[in-house]
């Protein structure tokens, strides 16, 4: 806003929305929330990095030799690569869902939302399998620092995915009932922001935990 505009216009809002910045308040709140989430996950990741390689007892994440004895890494890279791919695809489904809702396509808006949630649930299924497998292979929260940092970091992410799946299914229901049309597409857009953010966090976690030794 330049000074002249502010002085002459009775309404100095720069954009179509009735807010000072011209952006939707809910969306702004959500981006701020995402900013806060960055520090939540940032702290978990920082802790993981600090304690990387500090475990005193096996199981270790990757193949390791300690005092001449070889230990097999517990992480299953091919399996997690697959679940990573699935979460990535759910993000693609999410943008398609938003685009369908925005052009008023109720059926496909609903369908893509359900597909997104289903892909998310599949990712969670992989995680449940992985956690269960680790548990039986002797890795618990209380086993070593790898267990503590790994389960809290990925578990915290998994909790976000779970919340996201419920969130998306609720929206799918609302779209199906016609309560969210193009005029309210911002609701879906915000859910999309959440979902993509959860994906972005996994984009950071996957290489840090699984790929970088």
């Amino acid at each position: 806003m330049d000074h002249a505009a502010a002085a002459t216009l009775p309404d100095a809002h720069p954009d179509h929305l009735d807010t000072s910045t011209g952006v939707d308040s809910r969306k702004l709140a959500f981006w701020t929330f995402i900013g806060s989430e960055c520090l939540l996950f940032g702290t978990l990741i920082a802790t993981y990095m600090v304690y990387k390689g500090a475990s005193r007892v096996p199981p270790y994440p990757h193949d390791t030799v300690v005092n001449g004895q070889a230990y097999e890494g517990i992480l299953d890279i091919p399996l997690t690569s697959l679940s990573t791919f699935i979460l990535l695809m759910s993000s693609v489904a999410m943008v398609l869902a938003l685009s369908a809702v925005q052009r008023g396509d109720r059926a496909w808006g609903r369908n893509w939302l359900i597909i997104t949630a289903a892909l998310g649930a599949t990712f969670l299924g992989f995680q449940v399998y992985e956690f269960n497998h680790f548990y039986h292979a002797g890795l618990k929260l209380s086993t070593n620092l790898f267990g503590a940092t790994f389960f809290t970091l990925t578990g915290f992410h998994g909790a976000h995915v779970t919340a996201g799946v419920i969130y998306l299914l609720t929206l799918a229901l609302l779209v199906h009932r016609g309560r969210i049309g193009p005029e309210k597409s911002i609701t879906v857009e915000i859910a999309g922001l959440y979902w993509h953010f959860v994906d972005v966090i996994w984009i950071v976690i996957f290489p840090l935990v699984y790929l970088i030794r």
């Binding site: 702004l28 900013g35 806060s36 960055c38 520090l39």
Partner: peptide
């Protein structure tokens, strides 16, 4: 809007 970039980038950079 650049506002979003701001409220996201600052905490992301901090993290």
């Amino acid at each position: 809007s650049r506002v979003f970039t701001g409220v996201f980038l600052f905490p992301a950079a901090l993290a």
